[in-house]
Nucleic acid binder design. Structure first.
Lengths: 236, 236
DNA sequence: TCAAAAGTGTTCGATATACACCCATGC
DNA sequence: GCATGGGTGTATATCGAACACTTTTGA
């Protein structure tokens, strides 16, 4: 047995984005009491007969109860010292087993409606939607992963603009969609140009329904039409 | 020791693109005689104290003698059966050690001038630039990796158009650059519009030199100016 | 009637596309 | 002189950016 080659555990970590009508949030979890204050990205070691994509799907299913969430692998993080801080080693000891000297992780992006009822009870002591600008200090290199994920989510949306609707309720107003775009790109977007842009999306369809009991002109609701999206995609 | 979690070796595999003035090529290698006919992607298991990026740099350095080649991680391939074909297991036995039951790999893109003298002697029995449309059947999931890499290289170039110059000689003609773009995007590009496009790149600068001994009007040479590129980038 | 957010068009500049002929060179 | 590839300009369409006022509703 040559010893110079790494022989290691591999994990997945998921950066799950949500949108609270004001800003992007990321779903963090706390699993046990070792470091009571430490929230982290949801993740897991991967099993023997499991692909990394399947492991990410499993983690997300345990969190949300959704079988096949949209997800996108974006990077393997493998710095030799990413799991070497004493508190992180301690956490690994307790959560998995002692003597995990090194841990490689594969990071995933995913999107989730923020009002989705989560499987709080089963696996996690706590789950928390955390606004992007209030990220706590997290264990391992999770802060670095979140930072990189912001670049990737923009690239993902550029590649497939229709995924943003996974961040919105089934019916939404143009205004909500507008705020979402502003949050993602972190800049102001002219509302008139934005209306035109949305009008050019055949997969955003107007509903008959309007807002009720709002102290201003009621906004129309829209929905995302998946079939129209697929037809539209096929034409490009 | 819980047994259900994967405990595995991790490798890197590099898809190195080159351009032969007609089409894109990929650099394949053959390391030993076990499967004498099998060319594969250059790669290596990663060492104990090594990051994956460093491992990819090491593989590329051993191939080309270049210390810091441009490279880009694009995906972790971890299907449980990717290294389970008998001939692949046999290869791992011989090349590394027996009983590697599973192998996860992290795939990288890189670019190399095709006339670069390679370190043929040292490590590889054979290295070969292989045109994209003549890819042989390769071991593991290397054919799948190459397929995915084609999508990624376009995304990379869109993100940073100036990397294409790593595929061309230090001095090149517009015509060469034109053929390269056509090969990358696999479509015809109008030459007049292309000239305009190049003229708008401040980092592509005309040289005084022209082609010699060609049986047609001699083309001007151009070079890529890295400093101008960086200044240009900073302005965006 | 006031506050608050919804909804709506036009103009301009930049960028991408389509398209055809003359030029320089070696043989 | 001819075959081969090099080099050039103009017109049109498309897309994104800038910009301000009227409408609807509840309080």
């Amino acid at each position: 047995m040559k010893n110079q080659f790494i022989h290691t555990y591999v994990s997945v970590d998921c950066v799950v984005f949500g949108f609270d009508d004001e800003q992007l949030n990321i779903l963090l979890v706390r699993k046990n009491e070792v470091n009571a204050k430490d929230l982290k990205l949801p993740g897991s070691l991967i099993y023997n007969e499991e692909d990394v994509d399947d492991a990410a799907n499993r983690v997300l299913f345990e969190l949300t109860g959704i079988k096949k969430m949209s997800l996108r692998q974006f990077r393997c993080f493998a710095s030799p010292d990413r799991a070497s801080k004493p508190e992180d080693v301690k956490w690994l000891d307790k959560e998995y087993q002692p003597n995990i000297n090194r841990l490689i992780t594969v990071a995933y992006l995913s999107l989730c409606k923020i009002d989705r009822k989560l499987n709080n009870v089963s696996k996690y002591k706590q789950t928390k939607w955390c606004p992007l600008n209030e990220m706590p200090k997290m264990p391992f290199d999770h802060n670095k992963i979140v930072k990189k994920s912001l670049i990737e989510i923009r690239r993902w949306i550029e590649y497939d603009p229709s995924i943003v609707f996974e961040l919105l309720p089934n019916k939404f107003t143009i205004s909500q969609l507008h705020r979402l775009y502003e949050a993602i790109y972190d800049k102001q977007i002219d509302i008139r140009n934005f209306h035109k842009k949305v009008a050019a999306m055949p997969y955003v369809v107007q509903l008959d329904e309007k807002q009720k009991n709002v102290s201003h002109r009621a906004a129309r609701y829209y929905k995302f039409d998946k079939k129209a999206r697929n037809k539209f995609k096929a034409n490009i």
